[in-house]
Design a protein around this nucleic acid. Structure first.
Length: 426
RNA sequence: UGGGGCGUCGUCAAGCGGUAAGACACAGUAUUGUGGUUCCUGCAUUCGGAGGUUCGAAUCCUCCCGCCCCAGCCA
């Protein structure tokens, strides 16, 4: 029989790894709550149109990375490649503006992009996503970046590099685009084929090209910061100054344009020194026209996404959680098995972690299993003990063994176990 | 989509044309009832798959599949 395996680029998170994930998620919930963010859970699938409109038709994500398929009623659906679009859709759909002029939302979950996998890049990956709607003040930009920085720091990330840039607004960006196109026209033939195409479809994307020659051409291209309109300039200056107040170490990268079309004004990225090729741990920015562009009210927005796989990969290896079991019931013989079965499950109902073996194996093999499960106690319960109305309770650490009469056995066990837990905790 | 590397037990592996080492893990056993150390025993008719060369292939050739890494792009 042929084995059925994982889909390429998808990963199982195994029991040894899940504690590290839970830890990150819990830190995030903690930190975000302090900043007034509330959790929203949105579907992992949306109508394809939503992503096309928000992310941009000519971005790499939409052009070649989406998992899109036709539903049985012919509707085109897409597995979300990022979360912002869905969150905005929900924000609009549930009229959240009417509840509160400012909405701060976060969500955690899987994203899907059909790229060729490599280190730190998967087809299903997880993001932690935060968005603020309805606040256009530069303090908000700084606050969001500060929160991100603080979260990553608390998660244990060192060697953080925060880069920021301003991408202008709908008033000044077009002029910049024109200037870039004009500049590129003269050197067109030296560009790689991709960039020649981008020049016409989405000129700013040329800034992301890593082809050596394009890089040196881009280095001499006009820079967005020189084209910012007055209000964008003031905004950017204010953001930088608030970030300095909050002591967020960051540098301006005038070449950073980001891969999603919807960004305006502030854009930022956090890179980790511990990662290698795919080193962006988090990225985000402001998207002031997007909500109304998707049919919602005129509210501004800003947000970021953290790549959890990359975050975890740049953390030192976490200690693996061992099995912890309060008591193992070693039952020998048919009658003892029957009692052991109920006893084990009753103990569990009482909040005790209990294990047993239904296979009626030898005492030795059951003791081995108890040891492997790291159990504090083992109750030896054979047909002999049933006849004598006394079970043996063995403390696995001290090897002390005491006889317990079967009357009120469950209550006695519970009190002994709780007692020993107290000693251990204290 | 292009480039590179790799596929031998659950895991890590040796073997490189003569008929699958070893270690860990797992299971069992040591006067049918006492663990973590120890002893012994078991554990790949088969080497990612399909063809081909050969008396003989995990080892050579061809094609296919899969995984990993790199580039583009991004989390």
């Amino acid at each position: 029989m042929k084995k059925i395996t994982l889909i390429k680029g998808f990963k199982d998170i195994l029991p040894d790894d899940s504690p590290a994930w839970r830890r990150i998620e819990s830190i995030a919930r903690d930190v975000f709550a302090c900043f007034g963010f509330r959790e929203i859970r949105v579907p992992i699938m949306e109508k394809t149109e939503l992503f096309k409109r928000s992310i941009g038709e000519t971005t790499d994500i939409v052009e070649k990375e989406m998992y899109t398929f036709r539903d049985r009623d012919d509707e085109l659906l897409t597995l979300r490649p990022e979360a912002t679009a869905s969150v905005i859709r929900a924000y609009i759909e549930h009229n959240m503006l009417s509840e509160n002029p400012i909405a701060k939302l976060y969500t955690i979950g899987p994203m899907f992009r059909r790229e060729r996998p490599q280190k730190g890049r998967f087809r299903q990956f997880h993001q932690l996503d935060a968005e603020v709607f309805g606040d256009e003040q530069p303090q908000t930009d700084a606050e969001v970046i500060f929160m991100l920085f603080h979260f990553l720091h608390r998660a244990g990330l060192t060697q953080l590099a925060v880069e920021i840039n301003s991408l202008g607004c709908k008033a000044c960006r077009p002029k910049f685009s024109e200037a870039v196109v004009a500049y590129l026209k003269d050197v067109q033939n030296a560009l790689c084929p991709d960039c020649q195409r981008r020049m016409n479809t989405n000129p700013l994307r040329v800034f992301d090209c890593k082809v050596e020659n394009c890089g040196s051409i881009i280095a001499k291209a006009p820079q967005i910061l020189a084209y910012l309109c007055g209000s964008c300039q003031n905004h950017f200056t204010a953001v930088k100054s608030y970030l300095a107040d909050l002591k967020v170490p960051c540098s301006v990268n005038p070449m950073m344009v980001r891969g999603l079309d919807y960004y305006t004004r502030t854009a930022f990225e956090v890179k980790s020194g511990a990662l290698g090729a795919q080193n962006a741990v988090a990225g985000g920015g402001r998207y002031d026209g997007l909500v109304s562009f998707l049919g919602g009210p005129e509210v501004t927005g800003i947000g970021f996404a953290v790549g959890l796989e990359r975050l975890l990969a740049s953390l030192p290896q976490a200690e693996q959680a061992k099995y912890q079991t309060d008591i193992f019931i070693a039952a020998l013989g048919d009658r003892a098995q029957k009692t052991g079965f109920s006893l084990t499950n009753e103990l569990r109902r009482a909040g005790i972690s209990a294990e047993t073996d239904y296979g009626n194996k030898s005492l030795k093999s059951q003791m081995k299993r108890a040891d492997k499960l790291n159990s504090s106690f083992t109750l030896i319960l054979g047909d002999k003990e049933i006849d004598e109305k006394q079970a043996q309770l063995r403390n696995m650490k001290t090897k002390d063994q005491q006889a317990l009469s079967l009357d009120n056995l469950q209550e006695k066990l519970i009190s002994i176990i709780l007692n020993s837990n107290e000693c251990r905790d204290g």
